[in-house]
Amino acid sequence: MRPIIVIPSRLASTRLPRKPLADIGGLPMIVRVAKRALEAKIGPVVVAAGDQDILDAVSELEGVQGVLTDSSLASGSDRVHAAIQMLDPSGAYDVVINLQGDLPLIDPASLTAVLEPLENPSCDIGTLAAPVQSDWERDAEQVVKIACDFGDALVTRALYFSRMPIPWGAGQHWHHVGVYAWRRNALERFVSLPQSALERRESLEQLRALEAGMSIGCARIEHAPQGVDTPEDLERVRGLV
């Protein structure tokens, strides 16, 4: 595999305005995410920005390339695809890791782990799952859960994603960590598809892939990193650095 890490980022966040530039311990959040990506040492790191201010924030970060994409793109996956088409039209990189720009505490080892499902040639997309640790985490709508069963394995197949606590009944629930390793051809196919019915209903774009018959594999990690979606999340992360 020849992976490249692309971090989609835009300023238009409704719950936390100008989120990528939020100060965390003296650094903009997007810089902290990019530095974590560099620490993984698995391939080039690109910030796919929807706004010039984001490019300016990472411009002096050695080893990170910034590219300006259309601010009106509908999703992070569309932004990642646009960036990779500009930077690598010949397809030299056959795996594209989509790292969310609101995960400043992501463990660099997780970016290696997300590649593990792609060791199976029938898997189109790799992602991450961590054990749910509390009733709040299980029931919170902002925490996406995965219907899957690892057993004793470290990699398994995702059967469904939901904001509800799936599957029903007693047993371990799994927190989806929104990092994706795309085979290049899978990403090309995905962005060409229209939104699916379940994607619209759950507001989860990965369901478009499942409804289209694509296979998503999950790598197990022990802890879900704290993401930043709200001012409260931001204060929590600031207290951890």
Rank of each mutant, 00 (worst) to 15 (best):
A74I: 13
S75C: 05
S75L: 08
S75N: 14
S75H: 06
S75F: 10
G76C: 00
S77T: 12
S77K: 12
S77M: 12
D78Q: 09
D78P: 09
D78A: 13
D78W: 10
D78K: 06
R79P: 08
R79D: 01
R79Q: 10
R79I: 10
V80F: 01
V80P: 04
H81M: 13
H81V: 02
H81A: 10
A82E: 06
A83C: 02
A83P: 11
I84H: 02
I84D: 00
I84Q: 02
Q85A: 12
Q85T: 06
Q85C: 15
M86Y: 08
L87G: 02
L87Q: 10
L87T: 07
D88R: 07
D88K: 08
D88I: 15
D88E: 04
D88H: 05
P89Q: 03
P89G: 08
P89T: 08
P89A: 04
P89H: 14
P89M: 02
S90Y: 14
G91P: 15
G91V: 14
G91R: 10
A92I: 12
A92W: 13
A92D: 15
A92K: 13
A92N: 12
Y93G: 10
Y93H: 14
Y93A: 12
Y93P: 08
Y93D: 04
Y93R: 05
D94S: 09
D94V: 09
D94A: 11
D94G: 09
D94F: 04
V95T: 08
V95I: 15
V96G: 10
V96S: 02
V96C: 14
I97K: 08
I97N: 05
N98L: 14
N98R: 13
N98F: 05
N98Y: 13
L99G: 07
Q100T: 15
Q100H: 13
Q100A: 13
G101L: 04
G101T: 07
G101R: 00
G101C: 05
D102F: 01
L103Y: 00
L103F: 11
L103R: 03
L103P: 10
